[in-house]
């Protein structure tokens, strides 16, 4: 997609949906829209009905006091992809599960739960997926500390 096409797509999506707002500039070539956490599910449902039939990626980024949840939606009919982002406070880390909309979220949300400790409300089977069930902590959080973990010497 060219930047112009992407800007048009962003405008089209956000114009019909007051809950969405363009979040970041397009300098890296990706269309990004943000949404409030409480409205994530409804927005995602709207986007799915608008033709984004594929949930490509679910992941999170630890930004100290908040987690940024990142969803990558893809549409074959529009031949377009957008990133949907929402912020989750660290001390109250939950968000609505999108399994009902895309079963692809089933394992990917479990992975985010496993590695970040974000709870997905309404997920049918929210267990650890990659780490053992008795593992303590969520390793991809920036404040994760483990006595077994040996830090690499900083010689670059």
């Amino acid at each position: 997609m060219t930047p112009d096409e992407m800007a048009a797509l962003l405008e089209r999506i956000t114009a019909h949906n007051p809950r969405l707002h363009p979040l970041f500039s397009l300098e890296f070539g990706d269309a990004v829209v943000g949404v409030e956490r409480a409205e994530l599910f409804a927005t995602a449902a709207d986007l799915r009905d608008a033709g984004f039939d594929r949930l490509g990626m679910v992941t999170a980024v630890d930004r100290d006091e908040v987690f940024v949840l990142v969803y990558r939606l893809h549409s074959r009919s529009l031949s377009a992809a957008i990133f949907l982002k929402t912020l989750v406070p660290r001390d109250d880390a939950w968000v609505a599960s999108l399994v009902e909309l895309w079963p692809a979220a089933l394992w990917q949300e479990r992975e985010v739960f496993d590695l970040f400790g974000i709870h997905f409300e309404g997920h049918p089977d929210l267990r650890r997926i990659l780490l053992p069930d008795d593992f303590v902590g969520h390793p991809l959080r920036k404040d994760y500390d483990d006595p077994r973990l040996i830090r690499r010497p900083d010689y670059i």
């Binding site: 594929r54 895309w102 079963p103 692809a104």
Partner: peptide, 10 residues
Amino acid sequence: LSADDAVAWG
């Protein structure tokens, strides 16, 4: 695997 499932399951 149906085409719809393939898309929905990513």
